[in-house]
């Protein structure tokens, strides 16, 4: 898959909404869509079967949507919060789903650390946090007055 190219050396251009950041936004967008669609189907057609799992699906979808928008618009602090929640979520839900499969009768995006999605849900928040850190460092070095959030379309 495509995430292998994410660790290439830094470019000269300031990248939040362009360059490698775009790739991250693209992958996040796909997951926002996938998790959102899955949650919508689960909640609307069989909510009573596994309310906890389906509400977690919905939570995952919201987190992905927030992360996607924040990354795309350059809202670094929001992105940091969303991606941190995402990392905690995938670790906690992944662990619980393995320890107590009965509590998760139906798959969520985060079940078994995202096994149903090639483990991308586990890798993605790590890449996201690395990207945000790199962005913060670069802005700190080029604008000593402080890294205010940049907005770019």
């Amino acid at each position: 898959m495509a995430e292998a190219t994410g660790d290439r050396p830094a470019e000269e251009r300031p990248a939040a909404a362009g360059g490698p950041g775009r790739v991250l936004v693209a992958v996040y967008g796909v997951f926002a869509l996938a998790a959102g669609a899955r949650a919508a189907v689960q909640l609307s057609t069989r909510f009573t079967e596994a309310p906890v799992a389906y509400l977690l699906s919905a939570l995952a979808a919201v987190v992905y949507v927030v992360a996607t928008v924040a990354l795309a618009l350059g809202g670094r602090r929001t992105a940091l919060v969303a991606i941190t929640v995402e990392l905690v979520g995938v670790l906690v839900v992944g662990t619980l789903s393995l320890l107590d499969p009965a509590a998760f009768p139906d798959e969520t995006v985060w079940s078994a650390y995202g096994r149903g999605y090639l483990f991308i849900p586990l890798v993605l928040p790590v890449l996201g946090l690395l990207f945000l850190r790199r962005l913060a460092r670069r802005q700190a070095s080029s604008w000593p007055s402080g890294g205010a959030d940049t907005t770019a379309g």
Binding site: M1, A2, T5, E11, R13, G18, G19, P20, R22, V23, A26, V27, V30
Partner: peptide
């Protein structure tokens, strides 16, 4: 989206879509 991206990362954006 790839067409609106003026850097070499346009190809990777398209690759993400294709992989999906």
């Amino acid at each position: 989206w790839a067409r609106s991206e003026p850097t070499r990362w346009a190809g990777t954006v398209l690759a993400v879509a294709a992989g999906t």
